[in-house]
Write a protein that binds this DNA or RNA. Structure first.
Lengths: 372, 372
DNA sequence: TTCAAAAGTTTGATCGTTCAAATCTTGAGT
DNA sequence: ACTCAAGATTTGAACGATCAAACTTTTGAA
């Protein structure tokens, strides 16, 4: 294949100068219609495309946003970030923005990667996921004036309204509250909550949604709240074992809401194994697993999350980066309200080996075990 | 933030010329050790990073590989490409290569995107997924001399060894054969196959794996093969309904192998609903769903697939593109052998509503329905 | 000591684009 | 016809790196 055509080739073909071609491409309004048409024909004929690297070198921007992709896919709900990535790519594409992926083992390595990408003018801005309290990454980014937006609130109290920190998040409180109220409307009157240990801001937010609903609508007291509030790690087996212990202790429980689909699935299995396979259970994330198994779940509308993230970074419509100070007056964050997707569940019957969870998996094959 | 340091800043600080700094970075061997050290110190002190766009403009390469990311996540097995993407990103990162995402609604749009990315010198090479027979994309890429590798064989007979088409694929035949033989070793003697209609090369490949195993080890005749070979679309409901019909028709069936986890999950539900929840079933893909539900499955070792793809594009170790003709003598493709991951399954009990599949889902919520 | 070859370093040109300033063209008002 | 401003187009410089060739220094053998 011959050398790709440059702007000069087009200029020659249309008998105009470089700059006029450039103007046709970037500011068509200032070019006389007749010449513009001539140039456009030449562009089409030569199938000319601007050389992105050259443009970047001159303009000092790349129309590219980077996001870290973790090596490991952590089970059921792990696909959430993948779904976000799909939505983000799609939305970005519509704005002429592209998504670059990178990996990093830890926050320090991620910062180094960011520095490299940034210095190379490869990337205009960054999308951070899985932020945590006192995250060193956001601190560094603010300090070095690197544009970014996070999927996830900064949970530190004063950070929440820090104008230099743009963020989008899903309103776990509202989602969990809607789920709980839905169960109440369907007739449940004693609803338990399966969540994570009280370290994660996200988990506590969802827990408060349940608390608020049962206090308002079922007049739960503190005793009830404590008795029906379970905290386990986000593992199917842990949720299962916890719920197996919970249900016989309180026969009146007639509903469960869970902080994730993983927990919900564990709860479903537990309920079935103690003869309560009719127990209504609602999860969170609307994962593919949940969809397949007929689990009702709170759906994080990731399209809206992705759109919000790009809006904060790039403004309402364009593809150009808005400097964060220039966005004065606009909100610096978006809180997306998720919505319940209700399904008729499959009923599960647990395996015989509920009591020996570690034995439920074993790899076979001559080369390597399956990783999760 | 002040202007980022350039190579000239470093040169000045180290009292050498541009080019020497460049040499320290790219061909350190030809620089005298004493000066090299001086330059390295200056680089560290200024925290200098080469400007990627400038380098690309000069070198005409980008160290970036692009891959299309589909907007939709099609259910259970759809996550396969996501898992591949994770593996690819990780492996690429180790070689100093980055992954750029783009979207396209159809093959024609994808070709246009590729043309744009290519012309902009944004991307050195492309990874194509979900190739099909007579794929216009591969044709165009070969014709325009654009480097690429596909995840998926070209199923056209002569294309398979076309030296200009690099490909990596998973050996579905071997995987399905292993799965079938595993069931036989565990005591099954009449094993059915649930696959896709005979259009997809992938599906037929897996079917042949089952056929070969049961012919060799169970001495199946053509009648048996036909009676135990089901073809349905890759939907849980379809598989369920088909298996519900199959099992009562032949009481001796004591095992099923399926072309995907989606089908396998449908089969599990069907088996449970006709009182055969003990029926051994093996899926394909080792999806997160399957992992959660304890489904035995054939795992596509995507690490190896990703590594293979990069090896074909870039050679054994480096980050530099190998021109496909320069790779003469080496193989132009990789066929990865997948391996069975055996698990103890949860037993499922189907819902009452098996007979009315369309009613198993309904969205609730005041704003919008959950999309899939 | 001399000189050519090898090793090390510097200079000028170049990649393809956009910006800033300069130049040329058009048109209205007098 | 003349002037001046606004409109349209062109030219030179810059972005930050690498390549190729020129130049300078060191090395080793006669």
């Amino acid at each position: 294949m011959a050398r790709l055509p440059t702007i000069d080739d087009v200029a020659r073909a249309a008998k105009v100068s470089r700059q006029t071609v450039s103007n046709v491409l970037n500011t068509p309004a200032i070019v006389k219609p007749s010449t513009r048409k001539r140039v456009e024909v030449a562009i089409r004929k030569l199938a000319y495309r601007p050389h992105a690297s050259a443009r970047r070198l001159r303009m000092r921007k790349s129309s590219t946003i980077a996001i870290r992709l973790d090596p490991m896919t952590n089970g059921i709900s792990g696909a959430l970030l993948d779904r976000f990535l799909h939505a983000l790519t799609e939305q970005a594409d519509a704005r002429g923005i592209r998504i670059l992926l990178f990996t990093a083992a830890d926050p320090a390595a991620e910062i180094e990667q960011i520095r490299k990408l940034r210095a190379g003018a490869d990337v205009d801005a960054f999308v951070l996921t899985a932020t945590f309290h006192g995250d060193p990454r956001t601190e560094w980014l603010v300090e070095n004036d690197v544009p970014f937006v996070t999927f996830g609130r900064p949970w530190g109290a004063n950070d929440m309204n820090d104008p230099s920190h743009l963020w989008v998040d899903v309103d776990g409180f509202a989602g969990m509250r809607e789920a709980t109220i839905h169960l109440i409307d369907e007739g449940s009157s004693r609803i338990g909550f399966i969540g994570w240990p009280s370290l994660s801001g996200t988990g506590d937010d969802r827990r408060r949604g349940w608390q608020t609903a049962v206090k308002e609508r079922l007049a739960f007291g503190d005793d009830d709240l404590a008795a029906l509030d379970l905290s386990v790690e986000d593992r199917l087996e842990d949720a299962r074992d916890a719920v197996v212990a919970l249900l016989p202790s309180d026969e009146r429980i007639d509903g469960l809401v869970c902080a994730s689909d993983t927990l919900a699935l564990g709860a479903m299995i537990a309920a079935a194994s103690v003869g309560r396979s009719d127990l209504p259970i609602i999860g969170f994330d609307n994962s593919p697993v949940g969809q397949a198994i007929g689990l009702s779940s709170v759906d994080q509308t990731l399209d809206e999350v992705a759109a919000g993230a790009l809006e904060l970074l790039l403004g309402e419509t364009g593809g150009d980066l808005v400097h964060r100070d220039a966005a004065a007056g606009n909100t610096r964050h978006r809180l997306i309200t998720p919505h319940l997707v209700s399904r008729q569940p499959l009923r599960l019957l647990a395996p015989d080996a509920v009591s020996t969870p570690t034995a439920t998996k074993n790899a076979v094959g001559n080369h390597r075990n399956g990783k999760e």
